[in-house]
Simulated scan of single mutants.
Amino acid sequence: MIICLDIGGSGIKGAVATSPSDLRPLGRIPTPLHDFDAFAEAIRTMADAAHATAPIAISITGVVDPDTGIITCANIPCIDVRTLAADLEARLHRRVLIANDADAFALVEAVEGAGRGHRAVFGAILGTGVGGGIVVDGHILTGAGGFAGEWGHGPVAATSAGTPPVEIPRFPCGCGQIGCVDTIGAARGMERLHKYLHGIDAPSTAIVEAWLAGDDKAARTIDVQIDLLAGPLALVINVVGASIVPVGGGLGKVAPFIELLDAAVRQRILRRLATPLVVPAQLTVEPGLVGAAILGFSELAA
């Protein structure tokens, strides 16, 4: 038995897993953001209600350095720059395993979803921002510092895109760099591009709806964004050798968007493919909890 937790900046969701495919929900509670004692106690309360001694596997926003165990998590300040797994183990007297939520997503898709049967899977997140995770032979590749798969950051966004081409400024990124893919990708990037191109403030959902309804301005925004995303994603695929790229997050659920991105990426990679490479994620219900369960049973229950 594994206690599975999916922790974000607004809430902690829990489940008891007797196998990766058998999860019983434990509900959801708010995430304590500024008090580590309250954060640990919230986890203790949820875990104790399910089982007194079962190990805990956590999918969490933030990046864990595999060498030091230190987590970088700006949106939950009370755990930022802590050795979170060790600190929780000392408090809760249970084994604790922690994985980045994008890595957990990639693992779910590799084991149970669109990546089943593929040796190398790159799970791309196009949600509020841009993220990703790499799974090879069923194991998460964390890399130095835990940053493997983070294709959203690094100053690689093009400065000209679309048909016909339009000049795109190098927008500042929350990571401190300028011109990251995160600044022009996913939901916030779509909104930023739409305002830059047309002077219109609109949520990404409205832009997508307008595009699907035939709006020319929205179509231009999508065209530019696809062009900006396709190059960096193609580079990742060439380097990693991924044979499938499941896409999660809000834009991953917009099939026409993913179809356009897939076609643009396949034109840019070295390998020639006649079948889809970039595809919508298959397991869209609680991927964080399912990913924690898979990780827990492969490592904690061994």
Rank of each mutant, 00 (worst) to 15 (best):
D103F: 00
I125L: 15
F122W: 05
G127F: 11
A124L: 15
G133I: 00
G132Y: 03
R116F: 07
E89C: 07
A110H: 02
A120I: 15
N100D: 02
V121E: 02
A124V: 11
L97I: 05
A148I: 04
E112W: 07
A110E: 01
H139I: 00
A124Y: 12
I98Y: 03
A110W: 01
V135N: 02
L126I: 08
G123P: 06
A124M: 15
L141C: 08
G131E: 00
A114Q: 14
G133Q: 02
R91F: 07
H93I: 01
T128V: 15
V130Q: 08
R119C: 02
G113F: 06
V135W: 01
R116W: 07
E89M: 13
T128A: 14
V108N: 10
I98V: 15
A120E: 07
G133L: 03
L107Q: 10
I98A: 05
N100L: 05
D103C: 15
R94C: 07
G127Y: 09
A114Y: 13
E109F: 04
V136I: 15
V121F: 01
G115E: 02
I140T: 05
G113W: 10
V111E: 14
G138K: 13
G132F: 02
N100C: 09
I140L: 15
I134K: 05
I140N: 08
G115P: 12
D101K: 11
I98C: 08
F147D: 02
H139P: 01
A99G: 03
G129N: 09
L141N: 01
V136W: 03
G117I: 09
A110S: 15
E89H: 09
R94L: 11
G123S: 10
G117L: 10
H118F: 14
G138M: 13
T142W: 01
V121K: 04
A110D: 03
A114R: 15
L97A: 14
R94S: 06
V96F: 12
I134G: 02
L97T: 05
N100F: 03
D137I: 00
I134M: 05
H93E: 12
V136R: 10
A124G: 00
F122P: 05
G123D: 01
F122E: 00
R94G: 09
V121A: 01
A110P: 06
G115Y: 03
L126T: 04
G146Y: 02
G146W: 00
L107Y: 03
F105V: 08
R94Q: 08
L141M: 11
A99K: 09
H93F: 08
D103I: 03
V130W: 05
A144M: 11
